[in-house]
């Protein structure tokens, strides 16, 4: 009984996860990570540390050795639909995320794939765009949006599916300081469990209460954000300062 109630508190559980890229590069080595529901975790580390690779395991896009559980469900072929509904993954480059000819179509893509009725989809598209401050841009073409707007719409495409866990890969990448600040503020307002991949210490401090540092495919530190950010030896080892 206790185990079950304990389990239900857990959003993400990764056990002994290793992944080797087809070209032989060892991307992840024996990763162990547990994230409780409602936590905001910063996943930090230098380029090529395996941060994006790890996020791609959380919804079963990549499949490595080891075990990944989302809300107690193992990530495997049978559960994949449920898992992808639970985990909303926002890619780093909005041009990868936004592939439709209009913003509306892109935001509707996830909910429609989930088999939601068109009327409800209409509603969730509207609401998701409202959440990210992009109301009224339904008929614009993603190519004509600014980078900051593209990032917002990318987040909306995932919010429309109402995921329990939001995984954001470098949400501030390539944005100017104000754009980064606005995106952090936006992310801060979103509910649910959050895993934010970032190099940006300010953003991490602003959004997250815990930080996990990845270096060469291994977790080298995991703790409260204050402790991690004040450990300059660690940050310098991870190439973050």
């Amino acid at each position: 009984m206790e185990i079950i109630s304990l389990k239900s508190e857990i959003a993400i559980r990764v056990e002994n996860l290793s992944y080797v890229y087809p070209d032989g590069t060892l991307a992840l080595q024996e990763i162990n990570l547990t994230v409780r529901k409602g936590e905001s975790v910063a996943l930090m580390g230098p380029n090529g540390a395996g941060k994006s690779t790890l996020t791609l395991h959380l919804n079963g896009i990549l499949k490595g050795k080891g075990r990944v559980e989302i809300h107690g469900l193992e990530v495997n072929k049978q559960n994949i639909r449920k898992i992808r509904r639970l985990v909303g993954l926002v890619f780093q480059d909005p041009d990868d995320q936004l592939f439709s000819s209009t913003v509306k179509e892109d935001v509707a893509f996830g909910p429609l794939n989930m088999g939601i009725s068109p009327d409800l989809v209409e509603f969730s598209v509207k609401r998701a765009l409202e959440w990210v401050g992009m109301s009224g841009s339904e008929d614009r073409s993603p190519h004509h949006l600014s980078l900051g707007e593209k990032k917002r719409v990318s987040i909306a495409t995932v919010l429309a599916m109402e995921p329990e866990i939001l995984v954001l890969d470098e949400p501030g990448a390539n944005l100017d300081p104000r754009g980064r600040r606005e995106i952090s503020e936006l992310i801060k307002t979103l509910k649910g469990t959050k895993l934010v991949v970032t190099h940006d210490l300010d953003m991490a401090a602003q959004i997250c209460d815990r930080a996990v540092i990845l270096l060469s495919g291994r977790i080298i530190a995991d703790g409260p954000i204050r402790d991690i950010l004040s450990d300059s030896a660690l940050l310098s080892r991870a190439g973050l300062i």
């Binding site: 990868d96 068109p118 989809v121």
Partner: peptide, 23 residues
């Protein structure tokens, strides 16, 4: 490579090979 990433992003949002349509 972009094609690959776009496809991954689509799968992440539940794409299973057919495009959903509405209105």
């Amino acid at each position: 490579m972009r094609g690959e990433r776009v496809y991954q992003a689509m799968c992440s949002r539940g794409f299973e090979g057919t495009f959903p349509r509405y209105h």
